[in-house]
């Protein structure tokens, strides 16, 4: 088989044309520069300005601003409602994910796609939509508008996808043989769920809950119309910041903003921690 002489193709190595083909560093440097400037001008410097403004009169000034009765009350309401919403999401999100993965019924695909609607729908439209059912002209005479339950409903709406979308893929990947094994060992349906399925879902449920909490405490658009923004009653933190900006109390707005940022960062750190923990557990 060795045909030393008869090479079937003419083979003559040549250098590629001497274009200036440089290694990536130049492009890499430009990329890092662009990303740094873009992030700085749009995100970092502005957020830094908020924190700086909130501290312009020292920590005592910051403390003074966030302990104003209106501010404190909006903060309490926001945290309490967000916590409640997160707990409801943890349960209902898991149940909905379960229904979408393990149950079979007509229209399931449409329902599955609709879960993302709250992400796609502008928040102001979400508020309007909820007013249609729970507002003064309610179709079912359920007048919740301008009450605290209305705030809960608005936040439930905008945070609906988080737990569902975080639990769903885990549930799909979950090995059903594990459940069959549990059942073959005599465990009932509920025991199988509680002791075999649930432990595998916990990281996903917690991660989704953390994200929905972070979203809930910063939510603005969906609560504007339905809550009525009554100070000391239905005004959430973001709306309170908005009204402070409108009435030129920028320092007060900055103080509350800094606190919201801080809470969100802590929750996101928790989220990252949960994810790492989940990866370690495999």
């Amino acid at each position: 088989m060795t045909q030393v002489e008869a090479a079937p193709i003419a083979y003559r190595p040549t250098r590629p044309p001497g274009r200036s083909v440089r290694r990536s560093p130049s492009g890499f440097g430009l990329g890092v520069g662009f990303v740094t400037i873009y992030l700085s001008l749009i995100v970092l410097i502005p957020l830094g300005a908020v924190v700086a403004r909130s501290n312009s009169q020292g920590l005592s000034g910051l403390w003074h601003q966030i302990t104003q009765p209106d501010a404190l009350s909006s903060l309490r309401l926001t945290v309490a409602v967000s916590a409640l919403v997160s707990v409801v999401n943890a349960f209902m999100g898991t149940l909905i994910a379960w229904t979408l993965v393990r149950d079979r019924f007509p229209g399931q695909r449409v329902i599955d796609a609709l879960i993302d609607l709250p992400f796609a729908l502008p928040t102001i439209v979400a508020g309007l939509v909820l007013l249609a059912l729970y507002g003064p002209t309610s179709a079912i005479h359920l007048r919740l508008a301008y009450t605290r339950p209305a705030v809960v409903i608005a936040l439930l709406f905008v945070t609906l996808p988080f737990v569902v979308r975080s639990v769903q893929p885990v549930l799909m990947e979950l090995d059903q043989e594990m459940e069959e094994a549990a059942k073959s060992l005599g465990a009932g349906s509920f025991t199988t769920f509680r002791r075999v399925v649930l432990p595998n879902l916990i990281p996903a449920i917690l991660a989704g809950t953390a994200l929905s909490f972070a979203r809930a405490i910063s939510e603005f658009g969906s609560t504007v119309l339905i809550s009525g923004n009554i100070p000391n009653k239905t005004e959430v933190a973001a709306v309170h910041i908005y009204s402070q900006i409108q009435s030129d109390n920028v320092s007060g707005a900055a103080a509350l903003s800094t606190l919201l940022l801080l809470i969100a960062l802590v929750v996101l750190a928790a989220f990252t921690f949960i994810q790492r923990w989940a990866i370690r557990r495999g």
């Binding site: 088989m1 045909q3 008869a6 090479a7 083979y11 190595p13």
Partner: peptide, 9 residues
Amino acid sequence: RRLHDEVHV
């Protein structure tokens, strides 16, 4: 091996 014997690269 055969290919290399044909194309002496």
